[in-house]
Computed example of a mutant assay.
Amino acid sequence: MTDGHHPPSPLLIPDTAASFAAVRAVLEQADAVDGLGVDIAATLDWAVDAGRRRPSSLSATWELLAAVASRDVAAARVLEPHLDALGILDEAAAAGIDVPVDPAGAWGVFAAEGPGMRLEAREDAGTWTLHGTKPWCSLASHLTHALVTAWVDEERRQLFALDLRDPAVTARTGPWHARGLERVVSAPIDVEGAAAVPVGEPGWYLRRPGFAHGGVGVAACWWGGALPLREALRTAAGTARADQLARVHLGRVDTALWAARAVLLETATAFEAGGSASEGLRAARARAVVADAVETTLTESARALGPLPLVADEAHARRVADLQVYVRQHHGDRDLARIGGDLATGADGW
C-alpha cells in the first residue's frame, strides 16, 4: 500500500470533472495495489492499465505523475517511462510516421549513452537489426518492449521499437547496488542482431516537441515525491516541542516547492499553447527549478527531523533514498551550463 503521507489531488492543476476523471480513476487503482512501488510485477500491471486509461492532456499527465510520486516514488519511476513511450508512439502517428507495432504490453524508453557501450543499427534489404550494448535500461528484464536509440552512423542516432522478449536481447541484472529505487534496476542490455522497427528518421526523437514535454514530466515526479517530506516537516513544526528553527525549515521547503509548482503550472500552460521555438530551454529551466526545490527539501528535512525517521520509519527512509537517486537524472551544473550556453548564443524565451 502507500505510505499514507500523500496529499489529496489535485496537486498542480485545478480540478475539472471532464479533464481529470482519468487521473482520479488511475489514482484509485494505485491506492488499491498491494505493494505499490515495491512489488514490481504488480506495479507494472497497474502501470500498463494506467497507460490504457491515460489522460489526454499534458497538464493532466503531469498531475497524474506528481500524484503517483506523492504516494510512492518508485511507482512513479515505473509509470513515467511507460507513459512516455506511449506518448512518443502517439506523436509519431500524429506526424504521419508509420510504426507497425502493437502498443500493448509494458514499455520503456532507453535513450542514455555510456562510456564503452554503443548500440548500433544496421539495415539490410529493408530490415533493421540492433547490435551492441545499451546502458541504463530500467526494468528491462520486466518489460515487454522499449523505444531505444541506436547509432546509424558515426554522428546520428535513430529511435527504434524493440521487443525485449527477443532471444537476441539479454537484460543484465547489474551492476545495481542502489539503496534508492532498489527494485527499479537500471542495467545494460546486450543485443545481438535483434530485429527492430524504426520510429521516425535519424534525429526525430530529439527534435520532436514531446522530448521537452517528457523531460518536465520527470520533474513533476520529483516534485510530487517531495511533497510528503513537506507534510512531515509541517507535522514536526506543529508539535509542542517545536521551536522557531522547525518553522524555518518548513518555511524554506514550502516556498521552494511552491515556486516549483508555479513553474510547472506555467510550463504546462506554455506547452499546451504550443508554437514556441524555445521549448527545450523552457523545459531545462523548469527541471532546474524543480531539482533545486527537491534538493532543498531533502536537505532541510534531514536537518529538521534528524536521523530517527531515516532509521525508524520505513516509508520515509525509502522515499528519501528513492528521491536522492531519481533526482540525479538532473545533471546539476552541467544542465545549468547548457542553459547558459543557449542564452549566450542568442536564445531567450522569456
Rank of each mutant, 00 (worst) to 15 (best):
L159V: 08
P135Q: 08
V73S: 10
Q158K: 06
S138T: 12
R71C: 04
R285K: 05
I13F: 07
D254L: 07
L343K: 05
W107Y: 13
P10I: 02
V68I: 15
V199K: 14
V48N: 08
D153E: 04
G238W: 04
T61N: 00
A112K: 11
A93V: 05
A302M: 04
T127A: 15
P198T: 11
T345I: 03
G51N: 08
D72K: 00
H142A: 10
A220H: 10
G200E: 08
M117R: 14
A121Q: 05
D153M: 02
D98S: 07
P198A: 09
L89V: 00
F271L: 12
A161W: 09
P7Y: 12
V99A: 04
V185I: 15
G180T: 07
I97M: 09
A196G: 03
S301E: 14
V68W: 15
A66E: 01
R287C: 07
P8I: 06
D153F: 09
V48T: 14
P8D: 13
R52N: 11
A260W: 00
P8Q: 13
E113M: 11
P209L: 15
V320A: 05
R282S: 06
V191G: 10
I13L: 09
D49W: 12
I189L: 11
G238E: 01
V216D: 10
A94W: 07
L79V: 03
P8G: 10
L233G: 04
S138Q: 04
F110V: 01
R122M: 14
E314F: 09
I339Y: 01
V327I: 14
L130V: 06
E28C: 11
E279A: 14
A161H: 04
A291W: 00
A66H: 02
E231P: 04
E192F: 02
V253M: 01
E231S: 13
V33H: 13
A66M: 02
A259L: 06
D254W: 08
C221Y: 03
A22N: 00
E113D: 08
F160H: 11
L227G: 02
Q329T: 12
D15I: 10
A315I: 03
A196E: 06
D15H: 15
A150Q: 04
L143S: 01
A283S: 11
R252H: 02
